[in-house]
Design a protein around this nucleic acid. Structure first.
Lengths: 151, 151
DNA sequence: TAATGGCATGAAGTAGAAAACATGTCTTTT
DNA sequence: AAAAGACATGTTTTCTACTTCATGCCATTA
């Protein structure tokens, strides 16, 4: 559904939301290593996110990346918008270029309803919700990202 | 969501369902031209569909392609299965490889519910339903594929 | 102020999907 | 049986997303 660049961006944003703070940056190497993403490639993606004001970057020792605003104000769709653009949510399921509401393909209405649900999910979910979920040990337990110790 | 090969396959199957009959084949050149698909590329895709028993092909003059079974028995998912494989319906929305029911990503359950709906659509819709829809002038009118003349 | 650790940027390389090409083989028709 | 029309097959080329490499630039810290 999304490009790998977009997947990397989403994963990195989640990671940064988990690990950075007001006065704490996360450095590229750590993100790349823990998420198993090619470092230099990730670098370009993060630069895009910086340019589009979702991230802040600092150079020098103690430098790195952090969110540009509270995690509660960043929803997933903002990330997708920067990397893949919003019309991923608007493509015909069968690949007809001319397919839209006024000239629908045979599955257009069923399919666009589902697409709308995906958009809704990405619109609704904020980084804050995701990190809470992870910190509580409800998600991504296998990655060991939770900061809480589960008994 | 699907590869272009898969889109081409779906479009071609619909076209063949519309234009072929028990004793009537449709030739590659016509399909490629009307659907605006590179001919030689389409050729390989159709060969895959032949190998996987969704199409029959005949050589020689009057040769071409036709469905291997009634349009009512071919649903869209069979086409997707041959070209892209079924695990397109099973991928994590954020791209985490280890994401599944037992080790979910933070949007796993919402997302897989939606994926299931897509699968449902492709499972339910048969080529017969689609062609009926098109012949009645309810879909793809712009392609001019309908055989009926609308007043 | 020099050394170090980090991001920024542009160019170059790779792999796989997509497309084009050339040739072979089969089947109908005359 | 020969010609022509169609699919079949294998090779090559192109394109693009993805990845890597090399270098420049900036900020902290000793």
């Amino acid at each position: 559904m999304f490009s790998t660049s977009c997947h990397y961006a989403l994963q990195a944003m989640i990671y940064i939301a988990l690990r950075s703070g007001k006065d704490k940056n996360v450095d590229l190497a750590s993100i790349a290593e823990e998420l198993d993403i090619p470092k230099h490639f990730l670098s370009k993606i993060l630069q895009l996110l910086v340019k589009n004001k979702l991230l802040l970057s600092m150079k020098g020792p103690t430098g790195g990346f952090k969110l540009s605003m509270p995690a509660s104000r960043i929803n997933l769709i903002k990330v997708v918008e920067v990397i893949d653009g919003l019309d991923v949510f608007n493509r015909c399921g069968i690949g007809f270029k001319q397919c839209d509401d006024s000239s629908p393909c045979p599955i257009h209405f069923e399919f666009s309803q589902v697409r709308q649900q995906v958009e809704e999910i990405f619109e609704t979910k904020t980084l804050e919700q995701l990190t809470t979920d992870i910190e509580d040990g409800n998600s991504l337990v296998s990655l060991g990202l939770s900061t809480k110790i589960k008994k």
